[in-house]
Amino acid sequence: MKEILEKYERKSDNLLAILHELQDSKDEHYLSREDLKAVSKYLNLPLSMVHGVATFYSMYAFKPRGKYIIRVCQSPPCHLMGATTISKELMKILGIKFGETTKDKLFTLEMSSCLGVCGVAPAIMINNKVYGNLTPEKLKSIIEEKRREK
């Protein structure tokens, strides 16, 4: 953690970048209370402020997440092209609801606003990768592939 912090100048406008990098460095993709405290100390900002900023943005999480974070776009273009079916199918395959993580800690399911890849609607993102033109069949094979990869 120290290494990550020290890459950045002690300026408050580095807050978002530091939070991003800390979160990305964790297998469980989340920011713990300790992380926030360390950042607050490093940047000399009140903990309440760091907390307030971090919780404002949807890309940061505060409880452990799975290895694969599945973000399902539910904005109008994806909705029109079948995002509801995709959402239901995902809940069925994974056996969890939105906001939850599977017991084996492999998948976390999140809903998302437009991901900026609407040309291939309906689309999802798994970690940093986009999957588009989805059908229930395609979805199944993607999840199976991820399960095999572990």
Partner: peptide
Amino acid sequence: DEGEPGTYKDR
């Protein structure tokens, strides 16, 4: 920041 649903021209 392009977040308007249905837009990816800036990307």
